[in-house]
Amino acid sequence: MFSIQTFIDSFGPLLWAARYTLLVSGLGIALGLVLGAAICAAALSRNAWLRKFAAIWVSFLRGVPLLVQLLLLYYLLPVVGINVPAIAAAVISVGICASAYISEIWRGAIAALPPGQTEAAEAIGMSSGDIWTRIILPQAVVMSLPALINELILLVKASSLVSVVGILEITRASQAQAATTFRPLEVYLAAACIYLVINLCLAAIGRWLEHRAAV
């Protein structure tokens, strides 16, 4: 029998654990956006070494599972004498991994702009700085929104992986809760609801931004 009471009671500890899910994915996303912009700039740079660096960065981070990256970082940092709390290792891993995907999303959006957009600006004598900030980026950012929101939603879900380094986020908390109540169905259903609400909010923000940018 499905116990509605257990289902409802599960929300208490799970929502408490959700702050870690939000913290890791929120900070991870913020780090991913900043690093992603830098890697994207490197990938589009005129310097061949920077382009090479960006290419290696992207192919390594996309080619190795986030779980493995996380464990690598978590066990590597103490070896090189850096002791950081698990939460910091988690944020850094998620952020670095996200940066690879985000930089590719932006590079794709910039490449998709018709060359005539830049030519028209060059033809009236605009500087390349102005061309980037006034013509290319405003359009590329808007064009990248659907893919970007998609990636951010994937990240929130992937944040469950940080439970392996001992962070009590939603998924880890539901496992514990399921073990003590012997009611896995109710507990995991509650966890699903919390993830769903977080991601529906992200999707709504994305739609609102797209709508605002649409003419």
């Binding site: 005539g116 030519e119 028209a120 004598g125 003419v215």
Partner: peptide, 29 residues
Amino acid sequence: RDMRRSIGMVFQQFNLWPHMTAQQNVAEG
């Protein structure tokens, strides 16, 4: 860039900037 300022160009595909109004397109330069 200084030389291009005095040379206007009109393209086959117009190449207006879609995120700006007609007036902003003209005012930008």
